[in-house]
């Protein structure tokens, strides 16, 4: 197999359904279809943005890829090899290569540990043969990578600001030398000026270390800024995927279009253009609509939308959209 040219991560028809229990004897009464048939690739040294609102399943997708959540069916391939076929040694290896950055900078750090213990934990559990002194040195190097001084080694999470905690979280993710990082809303809990610091850091790390990232966010402007490609998720499915500039300037799916128009804009020509306001809330992922899952809120929906499940199809090179109304967008 030619592993060099295979994408770093390939996700094929991923499904993650979670049972809802209730009633007498705690039976399974239905299933939340959090992720319902999702396929995409993440290439080497690429940032793939995954946009979506609450209930879109974007976090579940990210957590399934790094095996933090179980998935129901579908394939996840890492450098061309199926994760399901991994033996324990390969899983151990995989653990070194993939990492996660969390949304809540405080909650993702153990309040009882100091920074040194936090960032060196992956080194210990993954069995890096390092002495205590080497580990401390490595911890200092990791902090340096995220622009924190050695003085922070002894601090505890409660003694740091949100931005500093997030840097420590990133340093921990870098500890074992990963190739792929899932960043789950890494800046949305931070203040605006701190968001910029962390965004810059992520972009810089991608370039310096040759990382690939799955950047999960609900902020499309930030996503366009940082990502090479963007995938838009809605109710457990990918609606549209393509180069970020194309997605944001000429969306080919009505949901992406509505999402973009919902972003309050400022700068040149603000307040121009009519906003598409979607009616109602997203449907319940326990019983998604038939056909296209977006049809209940779509301004362009027609009768066929209830029957045909739209597949992702190429609209321009590398730009795929799952919508049968190719005549309107």
């Amino acid at each position: 197999m030619n592993t060099m040219h295979a994408p770093l991560i390939e996700v094929r028809d991923l499904r993650a359904w979670y049972p809802v229990r209730g009633g007498v004897a705690n039976r399974v009464i239905s299933e939340v279809k959090a992720v319902n048939g999702v396929s995409f690739d993440v290439k080497h040294n690429e940032i793939l943005g995954l946009a979506g609102e609450s209930g879109s399943g974007k976090s579940t997708i990210g957590r399934s890829i790094i095996r933090l959540n179980p998935h129901t069916s579908g394939q996840i391939r890492f450098k061309g090899a199926d994760l399901a076929d991994f033996n324990s040694r390969e899983i151990h290896d995989f653990r070194r290569k993939v990492q996660l950055i969390f949304q809540d900078p405080y909650a993702s750090l153990d309040p009882r540990m100091n920074v040194e213990e936090i960032v060196t934990e992956p080194l210990i559990v993954l069995g890096f043969p390092l002495s205590k002194r080497q580990r401390r040195q490595k911890a200092a190097e990791l902090l340096d990578m995220v622009s924190l001084s050695e003085a922070y080694l002894e601090r505890r999470p409660s003694e740091m600001s949100g931005g500093q905690c997030q840097r420590v979280g990133i340093a921990r993710a870098l500890a074992a030398g990963p190739e792929f990082i899932v960043a789950d809303e890494p800046v949305s809990a931070l203040d605006v000026s701190i968001q910029a610091q962390i965004t810059n850091l992520l972009g810089d790390l991608k370039e310096r270390l040759g990382l690939s990232l799955l950047f999960i966010s609900h902020d499309l402007a930030l996503m366009q800024y940082l990502s090479d490609r963007v995938a838009v998720a809605y109710l457990g499915k990918i609606m549209e995927i393509g180069p970020s500039d194309q997605i944001c300037s000429s969306p080919k799916h009505p949901y992406t279009e509505a999402l973009l128009s919902a972003v309050p804009k400022f700068g040149e020509g603000h307040r121009a253009g009519k906003r598409i306001v979607l009616s109602g809330d997203a449907p319940n992922p326990i019983s998604p609509p038939s056909g296209c899952v977006f049809r209940t809120r779509c301004p362009y929906a027609i009768g066929e939308c209830a029957e045909i499940v739209p597949q992702l199809s190429e609209r321009s090179p590398g730009h795929l959209s799952a919508c049968i109304r190719t005549d309107v967008l």
Partner: peptide, 10 residues
């Protein structure tokens, strides 16, 4: 300036 606006790419 610290807020990215739509249309800006890094």
């Amino acid at each position: 300036r610290s807020v990215p606006v739509l249309g800006r790419r890094r």
